[in-house]
Design a protein around this nucleic acid. Structure first.
Lengths: 349, 349
DNA sequence: CCTGAAATCTGTAACGATACAGTAACAATG
DNA sequence: CATTGTTACTGTATCGTTACAGATTTCAGG
């Protein structure tokens, strides 16, 4: 007991000018490193006044915990991983998704890491990597299938995640989805209101969950509003624009030509329009079209197309909230959301 | 000296089932942890046969260095940070950029972290964060200005970076850019070839470097090919589509109407087209247009627009290569690239 | 047989944080 | 006064990796 105020702190002075650590705060306050650590996490065994002091100093010197230190010790990475596919880039979905996610993460210690499929078509690859290396605390995936092996794996290994789209495997998990069934249904309603009766659907690829959602809505609409379906299964929204155009040109030129079109994607709609024109028909006269869109280019360039806007940025926000909720252990039911399609007002001229 | 083969290894057996570490390999090979570490980095003081053995075991058990361990010890994060602005999302540039970058990073230990501006318009904010927390080994930034404070700061603090766009401050740094001067020049050539003489430019915002590039090319073209300029400075490509349309409608309706249009952005072109049509003029008749585009929607929907494609995905690849090159200390001159605009072939009908 | 150098290999400390098992001071209790 | 409990704080070990300063063995040269 030969200290001055209390007893000599066992903490040696930190190097000048370097980034502040717990040690810096410990030295400045005269406390132990452990105390500082616990004070900053508001542990119950630290005095109120001490906590206040520590917090003040920490704020003053701009202390930010060293991520590597925390990660090494606790395993917590403070990383959310967005697992991407090339298809999504092509659909122009990544931009707003990334922005939406980062909007939410900005207020948290989480960083967003983008993990792509390495062109090999193994969807489990990136998931395995994240699981094996403990690269993230949570994962966001998309292009969901009814029985999705990624969901199985993530659930088994207990890594929190959220999905853009739903599954049908009896596993309750966080998701955000666009109500594609409703979209299909309302699209048919709109077309029938315009006097159209012979409708086609440019559908999502059959292995994805929202394929059946959209088709179900479409067919329910046909029945409820009294229209018939024109078969068009040669292509889907994952096909190249050229393939879609060529297939649709053929259909529009045939005796079986539809007069109403529902497009499951904005870029698909572009190809369909080209197909219509290649068949020397005119949109708005020979046929009407309703399309789901992720931007409003179509509305500007082809205002005769009726559009329902899928707000991917909102989806990004919802998904980010959902993964974090999952990480924090909130009840899964509260981490599911469905966004309702609405027709966009026609472009004012 | 009571060992069996040589002497008893000082390494205790690692926990079963856990992720393999250097300790695991050390135990399996009977070597010390240090030796294993050095063997894996091919240090000169380790025997050839030992290295071979270590590498084999490491590969067999799928060893991957713990990022937190490395980062804590060495400060190397193996992270590249892409600093984004909201404007880029609006221009739909983020998607292909992210994909391009990850394509390159896939073959390296680097991860891509996306760091957005937090709507506050402080461009140095995210840079300071990265510098202060040592969050990344390298940074990719865009929307460059002639005198860009981010470049000053990054250079001062010696954090490797690459820029999408150039600066004019005498600092030699890695970049990738689209040759906007050439674009402006060739656009004018094309329009004059079509018999157009009174040209406008929808230009980039004046504070960005490529504003003057594009304008210089445009004006050089006017002089070389004998055309005149119609003033149109009320808006630029950063304005809302509605603002651009309204301004252009007014211009097209005036006695000063141009007959040739150069659009510095694809979305701008959409608004210009709307403006033309609102003024009851017709593209291809009353005026021709050349636009820079990041996708080929325009080509599909308005084939009468002549387009030069800026491949953002390639830009992402170049930028990723450039930052890594910078990190590895390769000469800066080899880390600069300029992509040449080329007219896209007209859409086959 | 000793010395020195070369070739290989190894233990310890440290990066920054936290879990855990204390310790010290003081008050209340019997 | 000893015991017990409570409050407030702290030292040590550890996560996985690497820098650094040895340690051990072998062998050539004297």
């Amino acid at each position: 007991m030969e200290g001055r105020t209390r007893n000599r702190p066992a903490v040696t002075p930190p190097t000048e000018g370097a980034r502040p650590t717990l040690k810096t705060i410990a030295f400045m306050t005269g406390l132990g490193i452990t105390t500082v650590s616990r004070a900053l996490k508001d542990a119950p065994d630290i005095g109120a006044e001490t906590k206040e002091r520590v917090r003040l100093v920490a704020k003053q010197i701009g202390y930010q915990p060293n991520r590597a230190g925390v990660r090494l010790r606790t395993g917590k990475t403070n990383v959310i991983s967005l697992v991407l596919t090339l298809e999504e880039e092509i659909m122009g979905i990544t931009s707003p998704m990334v922005i939406g996610i980062t909007e939410i993460l900005a207020g948290t210690p989480y960083h967003l890491v983008v993990t792509p499929y390495s062109s090999s078509k193994d969807p489990l690859g990136p998931i395995r990597y994240i699981l094996d290396t403990g690269a993230a605390d949570g994962v966001i995936i998309s292009r969901m299938e009814p029985h999705d092996p990624r969901v199985t794996l993530l659930t088994e290994r207990q890594l929190p995640f959220a999905t853009h789209g739903r599954t049908e495997m009896g596993i309750v998990h966080p998701y955000h989805d666009f109500d594609n069934e409703r979209f299909g249904y309302e699209a048919v309603r709109k077309l029938v209101e315009r006097g159209r009766r012979r409708l086609v659907l440019l559908e999502p690829p059959p292995h994805l969950t929202f394929h059946s959602h959209m088709r179900t809505g479409f067919e329910r609409g046909l029945k409820d509003f009294g229209a018939e379906s024109v078969s068009f299964h040669q292509v889907n929204i994952d096909y190249s624009l050229v393939a879609i155009r060529d297939a649709f040109e053929k259909l529009m030129g045939s005796s079986d030509a539809p007069d109403g079109i529902v497009s499951g994607s904005g870029s698909g709609a572009i190809a369909l329009i080209a197909g219509i024109e290649a068949a020397r028909k005119k949109l708005g006269e020979d046929a009407d079209m309703v399309s789901k869109v992720p931007s409003d280019f179509l509305r500007w360039l082809r205002p005769e197309v009726m559009t329902m806007y899928e707000d991917i940025r909102v989806a990004g926000r919802e998904l980010a909230r959902a993964v974090i909720g999952h990480i924090e252990g909130r009840p899964t039911e509260t981490l599911q959301s469905l966004s309702q399609p609405e027709f966009q007002p026609p472009m004012q001229r």
